[in-house]
Design a protein around this nucleic acid. Structure first.
Lengths: 339, 339
DNA sequence: TACGGATGTGTGAACGTGCACACAGTAGGA
DNA sequence: TCCTACTGTGTGCACGTTCACACATCCGTA
């Protein structure tokens, strides 16, 4: 079980000794300060010569900063496969952190074991802050962040038990209202919804927005309830709706993937889109432009969500007090061919 | 620019002082050793009381081990969006590392800036090893890993300049041969290929396998060369092939996404699949079962690639010398409806 | 000449941890 | 009685870094 120690690497002492100076001067070359041109040149030469790389662990220990920010993704299994947004959120966050010369490290939480280990990791000083995507309510990670006052930002699921932790998201209710009103404005009257993930607030909010926007046109019978935001759920949900109400002329799918599945079911049933049925999605993911016809949908600013959350964490790191604890990003409607 | 130091946290000293014992005893309850039952109880009580969490940075500095392994993903923009495999590879790696109580940290490389920062990160002692996905030939990260003798494993793209670094992948040539032979066995004679990513070895190998398998049936005219493994490339490539050879009756698409695009182009052109044209893909991704008809394809063992690479790194970490430096995982054919 | 400031360099301490070692007490066997 | 083995605890040092401080030198000016 005992492991061999890794290869010994050059330290500030080694290069100081190599050029006959003290470690202080070497440190000054690295971090700024008064150093003569000759000394600097000699030290830099020795550094490349001995292949010196500063030890992050030692630096983090002394400085109490690691220049790293965690990106914690929950249940990525479904996220990676069904929701193309998680990748864009990551890239947005990475870009923003990169500009501030911070390293983004993504941590995947799939099991209880992962959860505990990630919580330990977050509290151990390897990261200065965290961006947390779609955590569940009673997540131990929320507790750790709250207890340690770790600079953090949540995306996609506000942490109800720790109201002081900043949150960045979209207005699911408002977006659902807007896209539903679009359906109505195109003359549809028997409008249904394929509602998904009603155990998450994103799913609930989209359904609520749909109900609000429809008002008297709303019919409980025209809600198909499916578990996930994926293609298969879309196929099933649409078949369900068609069976219940053959005269349906408008459908709001809770995601683009669902809409793509619905499109397939409509094709099976011989219905044309947008001729017979107007169909709208949610996300503006790659699904939206792959479909035939292309989807009218709600643009989800995934990249911006990521970079915005990163900014929030970086601001906390630089000592600013973050005032706006809940921030909602705009979600423009994207009008294409499906409705 | 100067930042406030994070909140002071309890250390071994603090809890030792709290119970009137020495730090050594505290260390022993953490890491094992002779401790009396009363002492252990008192110390554990003080730990939860003061909210003690061990400092990873200090531990890593002292132990020269961080219990963390990096997962480096290159150009994730295209990977996350077009290739659903990267997510599965990550999850496979995470599961294997998790079992060995190691933390997987994913690092995204998108820009030259990222590249440099990640290289620094890898060499700084925050991770004990690295899993690298699809690195390019002259990648500075390869150099760092090689120079520091960092335990590592490559996936998807063997590091040509550092032959001693272990590699886990699939036999692209053999897989392409197998799936092409399947096409031939179903009676197709005018068989084309939509070849993609011919700047990567995966793309080149798949084309070579196709050529080898076809033998005298091979026709250079029936190769459509597209840049990426994505849907749009598939549409374009298939239109191209149809224009060049209207009598084409078999197509090998270099990926499932490409095959899905090809399916769309074939539908446009009024060709039925598999009636008029036999179509096969590569990857066995979610695309394969979404298509109508479902795709016959090559199963890419994404999860296994990840876990296998993780095992290789873990073995190096435990001091074993890794003998098999190049390891290819089996890629069974998945026969569905498209050919 | 003396003095203050700017420039350049060395030294000691500290960050929080784990481990080797030292030490004390007890028990058992020669 | 002494020696050894085992249990339990305390102490010093090292990991590699940064920073405050001390010290040294040089220059310009009063």
């Amino acid at each position: 079980m005992s492991r061999p120690l890794p290869q010994k690497r050059a330290t500030v002492h080694d290069i100081a000794a190599a050029v006959g100076m003290s470690r202080g001067t070497v440190s000054r070359v690295l971090n700024g300060g008064y150093v003569s041109a000759e000394a600097r040149a000699a030290i830099e030469a020795a550094m490349t010569d001995l292949g010196y790389v500063p030890n992050n662990a030692a630096r983090a220990l002394k400085m109490r900063r690691s220049q790293a920010v965690a990106f914690v993704a929950h249940e990525p299994h479904s996220l990676f496969l069904d929701d193309p947004n998680i990748g864009s959120i990551m890239l947005g966050a990475n870009a923003a952190l990169s500009l501030a010369d911070h390293q983004m490290v993504s941590l995947v939480v799939e099991s209880a074991r992962d959860n505990e280990r990630v919580a330990r990791y977050l509290s151990g000083g390897f990261v200065d802050g965290a961006i947390v995507v779609s955590a569940r309510t009673n997540d131990p990670i929320i507790k750790v962040i709250s207890d340690l006052a770790l600079p953090a930002a949540f995306i996609g699921h506000p942490p109800d038990l720790a109201q002081h932790i900043p949150f960045v998201g979209i207005d699911n209710v408002g977006s659902a209202v807007a896209i539903t009103e679009h359906l109505v404005s195109t003359g549809r009257r028997r409008i249904g919804m394929i509602a998904a993930a009603l155990d998450r607030d994103s799913g609930i909010d989209r359904l609520n927005g749909f109900r609000d926007a429809l008002g008297p046109l709303f019919d409980e019978e025209l809600i198909a309830d499916v578990p996930h935001y994926d293609y298969g759920s879309g196929v099933k949900g649409m078949r369900d709706l068609l069976e219940r109400e053959p005269g349906i002329d408008g459908v709001f799918a809770a995601s683009d993937a669902i809409a793509a599945g619905a499109l397939e079911a409509l094709r099976e049933a011989g219905r044309s889109v947008p001729g017979d049925v107007g169909l709208v999605g949610f996300d503006d993911s790659t699904w939206a432009v792959r479909c035939q016809p292309q989807l009218t949908t709600v643009h989800q600013p995934a990249k911006e969500l990521g970079s915005c959350a990163a900014q929030v964490v970086l601001r906390q790191l630089s000592g600013e007090t973050v005032e706006t604890t809940r921030q909602l990003l705009p979600t423009p409607l994207v009008l294409r061919d499906s409705a």
